[in-house]
């Protein structure tokens, strides 16, 4: 069972308190009624399935009930960081395939973004 750091509660909590909610950083178009079929396809149907870092939404459903985002390495199943909904997608690159193996789990749950310590 994973330990997941909720950026709102500021705590690492067990995975059973959370629900995964699909890919992150897919904004609903402001002009929803007017978008083209292709734009709708991209918004609603198309999803990434990377080997490596994926950005996904989680909800602390049995806690504060807030949605937040996480960067997770799909190779190691390690959550590299979590951050509040609405913050920009962080720049995470794994230079070597082994990097994910060496990320300190003690750090992995914490957000790296400035201003998030509040």
């Amino acid at each position: 069972m994973l330990l997941i750091h909720c950026p709102y509660c500021g705590e690492e909590r067990p995975e059973v308190e959370f629900r995964q909610s699909g890919e992150a950083h897919i904004a609903r178009p402001q002009n929803m009624a007017d978008i083209t079929d292709e734009e709708f396809e991209a918004f609603f149907f198309l999803r990434d399935n990377p080997k490596g870092v994926t950005f996904e939404r989680w909800r602390h459903v049995h806690g504060c009930a807030r949605f937040f985002n996480a960067a997770r390495d799909t190779v190691t199943d390690k959550i590299l960081m979590t951050y509040k909904a609405g913050l920009p997608k962080p720049d995470i690159t794994l230079p070597e395939k082994t990097l994910a193996l060496t990320v300190d789990p003690g750090v992995s749950g914490r957000s790296l973004l400035p201003g998030d310590a509040k």
Binding site: R59, V61, A65, F67
Partner: peptide, 13 residues
């Protein structure tokens, strides 16, 4: 409830 919360929190905060 989840769907309403989702839109309220993430699309129309």
């Amino acid at each position: 409830m989840t769907m309403m919360e989702d839109y309220l929190q993430t699309e129309w905060p």
